[in-house]
Amino acid sequence: MAQVRIQHEDFNLSDELAHLRANDLRVGAVCSFVGTVRDTRAITGASGDEIRTMELEHYPGMTEKAIEAMIEEAHRRFDFYEALVIHRIGVLRPADQIVLVAVTSAHRGQSFQACEFLMDYLKTQAPFWKKEETPQGAQWVDARVSDDAALARWGIQASNA
């Protein structure tokens, strides 16, 4: 059964993974991905690259449906038991957690693949938008062509960016 949560609050990775596989003795593998807010200044060293905050907007109603549909698609492709997607919205700061995708399966291969597929799908098909507050002011983040390419690996044509 798919679990999708869009929330302002932070999440606790250990608690979420424990809950996801609780009482399911079929599970032999749990794979998870956590996306976090990075401060580009910490990478480039340029003060102008500072990310002070990141604000996430979404399309209530559509977001949940789009993610549920992508989990159904993942079930058609991979042999896994449970999938959990948590995506935060609102104002976040560098180092904050943004997104969690977690998958359980009997063996590691299927949950690794399903987890990566779900993230690639989410990046180009789920209606979220990021706005960064920088020393130059606020600016909307541009979509990346590399994210379309990532989804194309799974045989799905994305034309988001």
Binding site: M62, V99, M119, K123, A126, P127, F128, K130, D142, D147
Partner: peptide, 10 residues
């Protein structure tokens, strides 16, 4: 009908 720019979540 919803109009929006390319999505940038994740």
């Amino acid at each position: 009908v919803g109009f929006f720019p390319p999505v940038t979540g994740g």
